[in-house]
């Protein structure tokens, strides 16, 4: 069995993916965990490159490493007081069940993979210029999912804004006070006739 340069890169990238991922789910310090999450994403991007998916690799770096990691860091900083003593409490819930389920999932997936015979990779890259072909196909064959995801992005944008903003109170102009002032009258105590 000979190792090609591809194989060496593969092993390295696999380690770069899995090792930080293991730390992400175990480290107590969330800031560190988030930074390691970025490392893991970079490793996955490398694996994409090995699989001739340059565009997806670039998108991975831009979206996951660039945007989502930063977003998560922001969320941590907005919600976590590092000096908060709650932060020092237990980091896990139901650790036993979680370990069991995760391990069982891994084992059954492994068994599933091992129970099949998979074709080997063919030599030549099937598509010379995946980015161009993908671009054409996204706007022809896959136009529907493409458009749907654009709508989803819009909805998510609106949803995030709506969730994060504050309601503003309604103000009544002075000349309509006569009609709308019963409300304020209701709020003032009037002798407790209804009590």
């Amino acid at each position: 069995m000979t190792f090609t340069s591809h194989d060496i890169a593969f092993v390295g990238l696999a380690l770069l993916t899995l090792a930080p991922a293991a730390l992400v789910v175990t480290l107590r310090n969330l800031i560190h965990a988030a930074l390691l999450l970025g490392c893991s994403f970079v490793g996955v991007a490398g694996l994409y490159l090995l699989l001739n998916a340059e565009f997806i690799a670039a998108a991975q770096v831009l979206v996951y490493v660039g945007a989502i990691t930063v977003l998560i860091l922001f969320a941590i900083m907005l919600t976590q007081k590092l000096a908060d003593n709650r932060f020092a409490g237990a980091a896990y819930n139901q650790l036993g069940w979680g370990l069991f389920v995760a391990a069982m999932v891994f084992l059954s997936l492994g068994k599933l993979i091992a129970s099949q015979t998979w074709p080997a990779m063919y030599d030549a890259a099937p598509v010379a210029d995946t980015t161009r072909v993908l671009g054409v196909q996204l706007l022809t064959t896959y136009i529907v999912p493409f458009e749907v995801s654009s709508v989803l992005l819009l909805v998510a944008l609106v949803a995030a804004i709506v969730l994060a903003r504050d309601e503003e109170p309604v103000s009544v102009p002075a000349h309509l006070n006569e009609i709308y002032d019963d409300e304020s009258a209701d709020q003032t105590p009037t002798g407790g006739a209804n009590a």
Binding site: A21, V25, A91
Partner: peptide
């Protein structure tokens, strides 16, 4: 599969909601 199981472990066990999201 390994990456998935690690993520699942994180999502099932971490107390902090942001950490769950990371999983």
């Amino acid at each position: 599969a390994g990456l998935f199981s690690l993520g699942l472990f994180g999502a099932l066990t971490r107390r902090n909601a942001v950490a769950v999201l990371m999983g």
